[in-house]
Structure formats: C-alpha cells, structure tokens
Design a protein around this nucleic acid. Structure first.
Lengths: 201, 201
DNA sequence: ACACACATGTAATTGGTTACATGATTTC
DNA sequence: GAAATCATGTAACCAATTACATGTGTGT
C-alpha cells in the first residue's frame, strides 16, 4: 500500500515520542529533522485524519493540562508495523532541484555582483544552520544520549554537519573566485576608458 | 511575472547553446545540470509552447539535416532579458526532503541490516555519480574551457565534487558505526542464550 | 525484421504549498 | 487590551511526475 511520505514522518515521530498533537508533531519535526525535512499543516492535519481512520494512530485525551481544543495522538501496533515495513523499502531519491546552483550555473548571463550576492546569502544561511545544528547536538547529548534512537539521530546530525562544513568551505573558494573575477571586470572597464583617453591624447 | 522554474532552465540552456529541440534540451539538461536539476518531457514540451507564445523563444527550422518531425528553438532578446531578470532575484531554497536521511533517522525502529543496506546504496550511487562528474569535468575542460560560461560551470561542478566527497567520507564512518552496532547486537543474542543455558546447568 | 534512439505530445494523478478562516490561551 | 503563541482545519492552486499514445530514422 503506497502512502505518501508525510505518513511515515508522523508515524516515526510518534514512535519516538507518543501523545503529541498535530501542532506539536510539526514542531518536533522542525526541531529534529527540520534540516532535511519539512511538513506543512495543510499536509499534517489531513494525514492525521487518514491515519486515525486507518487505525495506525489513536486519539488520546491530553493527560495533564486540558488546554484549548487540542487532540493528541499515539501510534498503534499497526502503525508501528506500517512504519517498519516502509523502513526496509529502498529509499527513492527525490529528483534533485537546487535553484541556487542553477542561478550560479547561468551566472555568466548576469553581472558578477549577482552571483556574489547569491553566494553570500548561501554562506549566511549555512552559518546560521551550522549554529542551529551544533546547539541541537549539544541538547541531544545532554537529554537523549541514553535513548535507543540516539545513535541514529547522531548519524543524520553528523551528516548535516559534514555537509554544512563542506558547503561552507566550497563557498569560500567560490566567493574568492567570483571576487577576483569581479575585480578583473571592474579594472577592465576603467582601463578601456583610460586607453580610450590615451588614444585621444 | 512569476513563471515556473522550468522556464528558466530552458532559457538558460538556450542562452548557452541555441537551436535545440525539446528532446535535445532535456538531454543537455541531464548532461550539464543533471546532478542538481531534473526536467521531464511532460514539463518541457508544454513550457516550450508557452515560451513560444510569449515570444521568449522562436522556432527555427533545423539547419543541416532535416530529420524526423523536429522543432528547434532559439532564445530571443526578450527571453534573454527574462532570464537575466530572474537571475538577480534571490534564490528561494526549496523545502528540503531527503528520504534517505529520514529512514536513517528512524533507524532504531528497523533491524541493523536495514540501515546498512541504505548506506550501501547511498555509497554506490555517490561513487557512480562521482565518476560521472569527474568525466564531465574532463570533457568540459577539453571542449569548453574557452567558453565565457566555463568558470560558472566549474563552480557548480566543484560544488558537486566537494559534496560528493564529503558525503562519501561521512558514509564510511556511518557504515563503520552501523557495522559495529550490528556485530554487538548479533553477539548479544547468543550471549543471552549462553547465560540462559548457564543458569539451567 | 527488430530494437533502439530520436521525437513530440496529452491526460491523469498526486503531492504539496499557500492562503484563508477561526478561535483559545498566555504574556506583557 | 494588544500581541504572540497555541491550535485546527479547509480550499484553491500549482508544479511536476507518470503513464499513455504515436510515429520516424538508424543500425544490426
């Protein structure tokens, strides 16, 4: 039975920590797998309904503080089985699409400063994400190091950190290259003017 | 005017090399930006019609060998302007989705061999892609090093290579970790049995 | 004759984002 | 009392994949 990916993120998150509302599930997703996975409410709430109807999750009333109108869910045995079935299926790599690289690839059609701006944005974002991941790593080590899932979380985290560092390293050399090219272009134009002036004189 | 991304890939490809058919454009995309961008025919042909209607490209009859029924296109001044406008707009990073990492993150819910299989597949794919990119780099250096776009192509290529190497390095340590964990799990089960037998004796 | 690459297109479906609509609770 | 966060949901839209349908040219 082919289900959409949202199904499995939700099941997986509930398998790690039960009794979460749709709102909380989304927050947990952002805080744990957010750096390589995103989900929107427009996707989460309908999926939750479907999972409930299929018996993969059950509705549980909030234990302690019954705030607002709020529905918590837990994973069922059937849900766990469904998750485990999915886990063994070879992953399919989603068709790659990187608008940043695409703009860079066509960079010759733009002025030098355009690519420089893109790479700077890229660096900013990656630096910020690096800080976030380092914080996340610290928190995980403190609060979850005895959790059986911990080694796997560290695996994805170390992937993220390795990639981030590689990306930042690359971006430095890319920026250096673009800046020298810009400088060359800038010195060529005035040079051309000077030559023109020299010719006139 | 907001256009879909397919628009700009096509325009960009035609800006680099004119007089290509839809079929050729797709092939070119695969061979140049394929490692970070994909396009399907279901997307290309309708977009080509739209670009033609909007005057961003023009239909050109095949120059030399008029094979099959086949339509070549070239970019217009308006098309180039449209591409350039798009290039300066800050890139928006597409919401990240990596099924491989997601399965790894939930790895604790599966048997150790499951994650190992995923990582092995990951390694295979990345090694193959590394070879492809190295070949691509060689070809580009031979045939296009004097093209004004060359530095930008090398930028994306070096990004791909850096990432690939980082990914492969990570995958080695990930695999090592998973293998020791698997060995530990395998030696624990028999150990438990032995203890049980010892208790009986 | 057969297979493969060339070549173009359409239709169905899906997976997903975004915007909209609503309202309660907490905090300042 | 205003603002932020918590909380749930629906509807419109869209970009893109996939499968389907069709046919030609080339090489074996």
């Amino acid at each position: 039975m082919a289900r959409k990916q949202t199904t499995y993120v939700i099941l997986g998150i509930l398998a790690i920590h039960d009794n979460q509302s749709g709102y909380e599930i989304r927050k947990t997703i952002q805080q744990t797998v957010g750096f390589f996975w995103g989900e929107s409410f427009g996707q989460i709430y309908p999926t939750l309904k479907k999972l409930l109807a299929d018996g993969l999750i059950v509705a549980a009333s909030p234990g302690s503080a019954p705030k607002a109108r709020r529905q918590e869910y837990s994973i069922t045995a059937a849900g766990l089985a469904c998750l485990q079935e999915w886990l063994v299926i070879p992953y399919r790599d989603d068709p790659p699409r990187d608008e940043f690289l695409l703009k860079l690839f066509f960079g010759h059609e733009a002025t030098p400063s355009v690519c420089i701006a893109h790479v700077r944005k890229f660096q900013d974002q990656h630096r910020r994400l690096l800080n976030t991941l380092l914080e996340l790593e610290g928190l995980a080590r403190i609060h979850s190091s005895n959790n059986p899932g911990f080694p796997f979380w560290m695996l994805t985290l170390s992937y993220g950190l390795a990639r981030l560092r590689s990306d930042l390293e690359w971006s430095e050399s890319a920026l250096a290259m673009l800046l020298t090219q810009e400088a060359a272009a800038a010195s060529n134009a005035p040079l051309a003017k000077n030559e023109h002036a020299a010719n006139l004189a």
